[in-house]
């Protein structure tokens, strides 16, 4: 008797959940949206989400709850997203190159790059190569000349994690300049900083926000963006110094596979409006984040383009799983 009752109740619950899945976009959203952050609180993804939070709530008209799902360099969170209900009520921040490189390197990362439904790509942080203020390297040229003079591998470059944009950027510089720098991965952008402050590595390949935060401690040799950034106008690009390197991390949000396009559009519009809010923009610019405005199609196309690029680079580096 009891068992039947429980069974009926469970069945009803299942139906209710399934029913919620086919909600149409006309009345979306009508309840709280969970916005998962795949990295530690306090990291770039978290800060961006926190800057967006209030404005986003206003634009969507419902509560947005920021939650953390941390593990496997983001893989845990994205694998979870790939299995969430495609109703638009669960979304997650996503990063390039991570979502491309993880499936490429691991084979099975629990999700596939193109399976995640892009909603919006809202920021990028170009790589910046930096050394200590008291180091003898005044320019990128000095640095490269020094690397050439020394045996390969002696000059060390710290950065955030393996297969991050920092890692790839260092590898690209190696190739472009014909040198061999040893890339030393650290647990995150922040934890690589003390290594340069203490002089344990020769240089740091890090992201643009660090170029603002540490402007009185470090010297910035080059930035890997197309053009110089407005907030750090005196940092020259790699390109203008003769090395064709444009590399950095891109951040955005994605929905589970199979989310209806109409729902994605509602979310994308809300993010677009949020990112164009002057207050949000000001905070982003000020902290060294480069704002991007790529809607669902544009970001999907961008991911595809980057996939081709990264696959080539990774093959050259011999890092693709056979």
């Amino acid at each position: 008797m009891k068992r039947t009752a429980v069974g009926v109740v469970v069945l009803l619950a299942a139906l209710a959940i399934a029913g919620a899945g086919v909600s149409n976009a006309a009345n979306f959203p009508k309840k709280r949206i969970t916005y998962n952050i795949c990295f530690n609180p306090g990291g770039e993804s978290d800060i961006t989400a926190r800057i967006q939070e209030q404005v986003l709530k206003k634009n969507l008209g419902v509560d947005v709850s920021i939650q953390y799902k941390i593990g496997g360099g983001g893989a845990l969170c994205w694998a979870d997203l790939a299995q969430s209900a495609p109703d638009g009520y669960t979304i997650a921040g996503h990063n390039l190159p991570h979502i491309i490189l993880q499936p490429l390197e691991m084979g099975d990362a629990g999700y596939k790059t193109l399976e995640l439904k892009n909603i919006y790509m809202f920021e990028s942080t170009p790589n910046v190569l930096m050394v200590r203020k008291d180091s003898p390297f005044k320019t990128l040229k000095d640095f490269i000349a020094y690397a050439k003079k020394n045996p390969p591998g002696v000059v060390t470059v710290g950065g955030s994690g393996t297969s991050s944009a920092n890692d790839l950027g260092t590898a690209e510089l190696n190739k472009a300049a014909g040198i061999k720098l040893s890339y030393v991965p650290f647990g995150g952008t922040g934890s690589a900083v003390p290594a340069l402050l203490g002089g344990h590595v020769t240089a740091l390949m890090s992201y643009s926000p660090m170029a603002i935060q540490y402007k009185d401690k470090f010297r910035f040799l080059a930035i890997a963006s197309e053009k110089r950034m407005d907030v750090i106008p005196d940092v020259p690009t790699f390109k203008e110094q003769g090395y064709d390197i444009v590399e950095g991390a891109y951040r955005g949000v994605a929905a589970p596979p199979g989310t209806p396009d109409a729902v994605v559009k509602v979310l994308a519009d809300a993010f677009e409006k949020t990112m164009k809010d002057p207050e949000v923009r000001k905070k982003m610019d000020h902290n060294g984040f480069k704002t991007e405005f790529m809607g669902p199609e544009a970001s999907q196309a961008f991911v595809k383009k980057k996939m081709v690029e990264y696959e080539t680079i990774m093959k050259e580096l011999g890092r693709v799983k056979k």
Partner: peptide
């Protein structure tokens, strides 16, 4: 604490 525990059908 606003943690995302499953609430179940009773509280949906």
């Amino acid at each position: 604490l606003d943690l995302s525990f499953p609430m179940g059908f009773l509280f949906e």
